[in-house]
Amino acid sequence: MIRKELVAASAEPLILSLLAKGESYGYAIIQEVKARSDGKLQWTDGMLYPVLHRMEHKGWIKSRWAESETGRKRKYYALKRDGKTAMAKHHEQWSLVHSVLAGLQKEQYV
């Protein structure tokens, strides 16, 4: 399991990156994150929505209500231009952290 602080910190970049592939809704976002991390990234499901709403307030994503194929109402989220910029910044920062960590790890085994 991944520590909750890291899970919380990774929420925004993960959501932005998932929405970059196309619009989606809360439940599907959580399922995809679970599947891609083999269940190691476990969010408390309800906590996703405050994050989505915060990102909407920031102007990174937009939302619309639509009916699913089963007739259930779902709120779909899509990436906005500011969201793409935010995603690029997140990727840059996470890549930097990753490269520093990888470099340090490499030095330990030399």
Binding site: G46, M47, Y49, P50, H53, R54
Partner: peptide
């Protein structure tokens, strides 16, 4: 899996 109502409320309050 949804989480406690009070924690959700606190999170929503923080988001604006």
């Amino acid at each position: 899996t949804m989480g406690q109502a009070s924690l959700l409320k606190a999170e929503f309050d923080q988001t604006g």
